[in-house]
Write a protein that binds this DNA or RNA. Structure first.
Lengths: 196, 196
DNA sequence: GTCTATAGGTGGATAGAC
DNA sequence: GTCTATCCACCTATAGAC
C-alpha cells in the first residue's frame, strides 16, 4: 500500500527551517520572528537560511503552501472516514483544538492579523486557505441538511464562513487566557446550534 | 444639559499621539508600528513622543486603558437606551462593525494576536477588556432569557464568551477579504441562533 | 515641550571563500 | 550547502540644548 520511497529519519534542512519558522509564526506572528531566531535554534547561520529561502516573503509563502497542503490532507482523511456530518464537524474542530494545545494559533489566523503588512503573494494564499475551509465545511453542512442531522438558518456558505471565523476567534481568545478549555466550550456551543 | 467645559478644538499632543498609535495598532499590530511612524504623521520628533510616553510598553498600556474606557462608555449608552436584549445585541454588534468599516480590527483582538510578544501589563489589560465584554454580554443574555426573547443552550457566561470570540474572528476574516459584508453576515447568523 | 544628535541593538539581505 | 564578514535601514531609548 505504501508506494512512496522510505523517508529519511532526519528531515532535510529546508523542512527543518519550515518547522521552526512555522511554530514561531503561529506563536509570535510573521513580523515578530527573524532569521536570527531560526538560525539560533537550528545551529546554522542566517546566510545559510537565505540559501534555502531567498527572502522572508518567500519563506512565508512556502509556509502557507505547506500548511494548506497538510490541512487539505487532514480533511481528506476525515472524508475517507465516512462518518456523518456531525461527527465530521467534531473532527474538524479537533484539528483546531490540537493546534491550540501546542500553544499555537492557526497559521493563517495569525497571518490574518498581520494581513496589512504582508506581501501580496502571502495575502492571496491566506485567502486560499480560508476558501478551502469554507468550501469543505459548506459541503459537510449541506450533507447534514440532506440527512436531517444539521439545521441551518441561512445558506451553507454563510454558515461555513461563520464557523471558520468563530473557531479562529475562539482560538485567539482562549490563548489570551492560556486556557484551551475556553476553546472547547465555545466550539461545543457552536456545534450544538448547528446539530439539530 | 452639557456640564463639561468646552473642549479644545485641537486635542492635546498626548491625545493626538494616542489617536495615531491606536489606528496604527488596529491596522498593523503592536510590533509593526513605530515611534517613527507616529512622528512622521504628527510632525514632531521621536524624542518628543518619548516625553509623553516614556516607553512603547507604556504607550501600549495607555492605549488599552483608553480603548477600554471608551468601550465601557458605549456599553453604558446602550444600557441607558432601555431597549430589549435583542436590540442591545444588535447595537453591540454595530460597535464592532463600525470599527471594521474604518478598516481596523478591534484593538484588543489585534493585541490578542500579538499576545505572546507583549509586556505583562498589556496582557493583563487585554484580558480585562475581554472580561468586561463577557460580563456585559452575559448580563444582556440573562435579561433576554428572563423576558423570553433569548434562548440559550448553555450558561450565559459560555454563550457570551462564544459571541465575543465569534465576532473577533469574523472581523479578522472579513478584513482579510476587504469585505465588511462578511462580518455582517456572520453576525446576523450568530444573533439569529440566539434570538428565538 | 520640543529639538538635534546619538547610542546600542536588531532587522533582512548579500559577497565571496571554502 | 555552509561559513565569515559586512551593509544599510530601522528600532527603542537617552542626553542635553533651547
Amino acid at each position: 500500500m505504501r508506494t512512496a520511497p522510505a523517508r529519511r529519519v532526519r528531515p532535510d534542512t529546508a523542512e527543518q527551517i519550515l518547522d521552526v519558522a512555522e511554530r514561531l509564526v503561529q506563536m509570535r506572528g510573521f513580523n515578530d520572528f527573524s532569521y536570527a531566531d531560526v538560525s539560533a535554534e537550528l545551529g546554522i547561520t542566517k546566510a545559510s537560511l537565505h540559501h534555502h529561502f531567498r527572502t522572508k516573503a518567500e519563506l512565508g509563502r512556502r509556509l502557507i503552501e505547506r500548511y494548506h497542503r497538510r490541512f487539505a490532507e487532514a480533511l481528506a482523511v476525515i472524508d475517507r472516514g465516512g462518518a456523518g456530518a456531525p461527527a465530521k464537524l467534531r473532527e474538524y474542530v479537533a484539528l483546531y483544538a490540537d493546534v491550540l494545545r501546542r500553544d499555537r494559533l492557526c497559521l493563517c489566523g495569525m497571518l490574518a492579523a498581520d494581513f496589512d503588512t504582508l506581501p501580496r503573494p502571502m495575502k492571496l494564499r491566506i485567502r486560499g486557505f480560508f476558501d478551502e475551509n469554507e468550501r469543505w465545511l459548506a459541503g459537510v453542512l449541506e450533507e447534514g441538511v440532506r440527512s436531517g442531522s444539521i439545521r441551518l438558518r441561512g445558506s451553507a456558505r454563510d454558515a461555513a464562513r461563520m464557523v471558520v471565523g468563530a473557531l479562529e476567534g475562539a482560538m485567539l481568545l482562549a490563548r489570551s487566557y492560556g486556557d484551551a478549555a475556553r476553546f472547547d466550550a465555545a466550539a461545543d456551543q457552536l456545534l450544538a446550534e448547528l446539530v439539530g
